[in-house]
């Protein structure tokens, strides 16, 4: 009797359990459906998203891996891994391929341009943010119009301008050109920042007898430091990567920046694959390092680009 009862009890219980498990299998899904705070697409989407991340990075990983192999190794097995990693390709690219020279040139031109551009733009942005006269609104829109200008199309007049100044084949000339090209974006970001700072700060400084320059340098600049970092980091990338200006404005190989030097090297060493991969890595590595240290600034810069 007890056994049948138990069995009878057990049967519905079993049914109930299966029903409950079925429901519990469905219920969270239903809950997920009705709440907007759960991710769209579930596990399948996660796999897709990570799969796409692999696709985004695989070519760069392959580039790095192959730069640590010998050329013979690559030709016999292009899909192989660097089982006995060697830096021979880097040595060759750095010295024989002159990448050492190109690297220093790129670094000098880019750092110089970013420094000049950020310095003059910070001053200008402060002046724009704190002046009331109508001429300043006019100047501001003049600068902002530069955001849309395809300045590469002005390469011919730039070429003749440089020719007149004796700046052809000059790294300083190239840096000044980039510094000028960065002014609109830098002013655009920095003016917004300066406008957000309360004017009482400066009024207090003036009462204490500070000159406009002291107020700017000692009080205002330290307060916009995060914006300065965004501007500097974000401008670094396109200058480092630019190709047309050094291609046209530089003449001697000893002054080439990396993108032009790379083109040169590619033309002469089309079959020395491992050295080519090493050259590509050398050109890219500073930006990867920059990215790892300043992801926030780069993302902020990309998003600021939207509002232009």
């Amino acid at each position: 009797m007890t056994t049948t009862l138990t069995a009878a009890d057990a049967a519905p219980t079993g049914l109930e359990t299966s029903g409950a498990s079925g429901a519990s299998g469905r219920r969270p899904r239903r809950r997920r459906g009705s709440s907007a705070s759960d991710p769209v697409g579930g596990v399948g989407a996660s796999i897709l998203l990570w799969g796409y991340a692999v696709l985004a990075l695989a070519p760069l990983v392959i580039m790095v891996l192959n730069s640590f192999r010998t050329n013979a190794d690559f030709i016999t097995n292009p899909l192989g891994l660097p089982t006995s990693p060697t830096v021979a390709a880097y040595k060759e690219a750095w010295t024989v391929g002159s990448f050492g020279t190109y690297f220093v040139n790129s670094l000098a031109v880019t750092a110089g341009a970013v420094a000049i551009s950020t310095a003059v733009s910070t001053m200008a942005a402060y002046g724009l943010a704190r002046s009331r006269a109508r001429i300043f609104r006019w100047i501001e829109s003049l600068f902002l119009s530069g955001l849309m200008l395809p300045i590469h199309l002005a390469i011919l007049p730039v070429f003749f301008l440089f020719d007149g100044f004796g700046l052809i084949d000059s790294r300083l000339g190239l840096a000044l050109m980039y510094a000028a090209a960065g002014v609109p974006f830098s002013i655009f970001v920095l003016t917004t920042f300066f406008r957000q700072l309360p004017e009482e700060l400066e009024e207090a400084a003036v009462l204490d007898g500070a000159s406009p320059w002291q107020t700017f340098w000692r009080i205002m600049v330290p307060m916009v430091r995060p914006a300065l970092a965004t501007v500097a980091v974000f401008r670094f990338v396109p200058i480092w990567n630019d190709f047309l200006y050094p291609l046209v404005l530089l003449r001697s190989e000893s002054k080439y920046t990396l993108p032009v030097g790379l083109t040169n090297f590619f033309g002469e060493n089309a079959t020395n694959y491992s050295a080519l991969f090493a050259g590509l890595v050398i050109t890219t590595i500073p930006l990867i390092v920059l990215f790892l240290f300043a992801t926030k600034q780069i993302v902020a810069g990309l998003t600021a680009g939207m509002s232009k």
Partner: peptide, 14 residues
Amino acid sequence: FLAPALILFGVFVL
């Protein structure tokens, strides 16, 4: 404050 940026931008871009 605006002069350096104006000169640079004017000469090399505008």
